[in-house]
Nucleic acid binder design. Sequence first.
RNA 1: GGCCCCAUCGACUAGCGGUUAGGUCACCACCCUUUCAAGGUGGCGGGACGGGUUCGAAUCCCGUUGGGGUCACCA
Length: 502
Amino acid sequence: MVAQRFRTRFAPSPTGYLHVGGLRTALYNYLFVKKMKGDFVLRIEDTDRSRRVEGAQQNLLKTLEWAGIVPDESPERGGDFGPYIQSERLDIYKKYCDELLEGKYAYYCFATSEELEENRQLQLKQGLQPKYNRKWLPEEMGGSMPSSEIRKKMEQGAPYVIRMKVPDYVSVWFEDIIRGPVEFDSSTIDDQVLMKSDGFPTYHFASVIDDHLMEFTHIIRGEEWLPSMPKHLLLYEFFGWEPPRFAHLPLLLNPDRSKLSKRQGDVAVEDYIQKGYSAEAIINFVAMLGWNEGEGTEQEVYSLEQLVERFSLERVGKAGAIFNVDKLNWLEKQYIKNRSADRIIQAIKPLLIGELEKRPTEMPESVITSDSYLEQVIDLMRERVGFEHEFVTFSPYFFFDPETYEEEGVRKRWTADTNTLLREFVTILASLEVFSAEAIELELKAFVAPRGLKAAALIHPLRILCSGVSFGPSLYHMLEVLGKDAVIRRISRGIETVVCVA
RNA sequence: GGCCCCAUCGACUAGCGGUUAGGUCACCACCCUUUCAAGGUGGCGGGACGGGUUCGAAUCCCGUUGGGGUCACCA
C-alpha cells in the first residue's frame, strides 16, 4: 500500500475576525499535517449568504499568515482541489444531492418556517424533543406523503428544502483520535436539512462533500462539532465513502468556564495583535492550551518550527482550557527578552517617528531615531517592557524631555539641600569629557562621599529630573544614553520647577 | 430537558497501578539592588464525591455530583 499523503483543513466562515479558538484549530491542523509533511488547506465556508461580511475572507487569511500559518492551498493560492470557496461549488453539491434523492436517502420538504416553529412549540409543550415531524417524508420512503402531493407543490414552484432521511434505530459509532470511541443512537438525530431553500447547502452537507472530494485524511475541529458527527457519518455511509479520521479539540474557555466568547474579553486574534502581542507568543500560548509534550518535559517556550517537530494529536488533552492572559503576557516578555535588537528597531522606529510627528522634542531627532541610539534604549529597557511598542511609550524620556515630575517621588526624595546639591553636581557633569556611565558613577560617588551623604541622595533626584519618574533602568546608563546635553538641560530646568515641599 | 463530551493546585498542565503528587503562570516572603524590572531561593496551593477491582489506586470499572457543548433553511 502506498503511504497516503496527509491533508488537513481549516474551514472558517467569513463572518468577521479570526477567533482565537479558530486560530488554535488552524494551528493544530497545521502542526499535525506539517509534521507529517502533508498539505494544509484553507477553505471558505460561506454557505450562509446572510452572514457574509465583506473583506472577512482576506482578513482571515492575513491574520493566519501573520501567525505563520500559511496554507498550501487556498482561494487565493489555488490548488488541485478547488474551488476553495463553497459558494463557488454549488453545482457540485447539487449533483451529490440529486444522488441522495435518487437513492432515497433524502427528500423534499415543503414545510414553512412558521409551520416548523409551530410544530416545535407543540412538541416542547408536550415535553417532547423538538424534532422534524417528517410530514413530507414520501410514502415510498416509509413516510405518509403521497408523491402526487409532492409533485403538485413542485409544479406550483413552492420553496423547499432537502432533508436527509436518518434511518431509525441504528447506532452510529466512530473512534475519535482524542476521545476514543463515541457512540450515538440515530433516534436522537433530526432529519437534517441538506439543501436550503435558497439553493445553498448547509454546513453539514457541504463540509462532508468537500472533505471527501478534497481528500482530507484528518478532520481536526472544535468539540462543538461532536454532536453533529452522526449526521456526517451517515452521509459518508449514504455515499459509500470512507470517512476521514476525526479529532475533536477541547474548547477554549472564558474564566467562568463557558465557551470563549466576546463579552468576556477579547476573542479576536486581531484584538491581540492590536494590543501588541507577537505572533510567536500567541502561537506558543495557544498551542499550549490543550497540548503539551509530556514525558517530563518542562519546556514552556516553543517556536513554530519546534511545535511542528514535536506536536502530536495523541498528546492533546480532553478538557477545555481557560484562556489566561497572565501566561500570555509572560510569554510575550520571554520573546522580547530574546528578540534581536535589529528586529525590535525595525518595529519601533515607525512608532517613534509617528510620536515625533505628534509632539515636538528638544532631543536631536537624528540622534534619537538612529539605530545606535535605539539599540541602547533597547538594551536598557528590554527586561522592563511587556510589549514591543512600550520601548517607545513606556519610557518616553528617552525621546522627550519630561514635562512633569512624579509627585510622590519628589515628596519622598527631596530634602532642603537637594536642589543646592544638584546645582553643584550639574557643573561637575558639565565638565565631564567622557560622558559615560562609569565616569558619572565615579563622579557622583566622589561628590557624595566627603559630604557624608549616600549616593541615593543624588541618584533619585537625578532620575526624577531626567526621566520624570521614579523608576527605570540603571541611572548611570540611562544618563549616558540620554547624553550630556540633555542631562544638563533637564537637571537645570528641573531645579527651577521642583521645589522642596518638606 | 434529551444526547454527547469532560473532571489533578486560582490558571495551564506532568503523571499512563507503588511518586514526599512534579513543572510553569499568578500570588506571598527573602536575597540581589539607587528605583523598576530581570534573576535567584523559598512558600502558599491540588487528584469533586461514593462505591468497587487490586497486596496497592490521581491512575482501571461503575454510579453520583459538577461543568461544558449541542439540539436552526448559522457555521
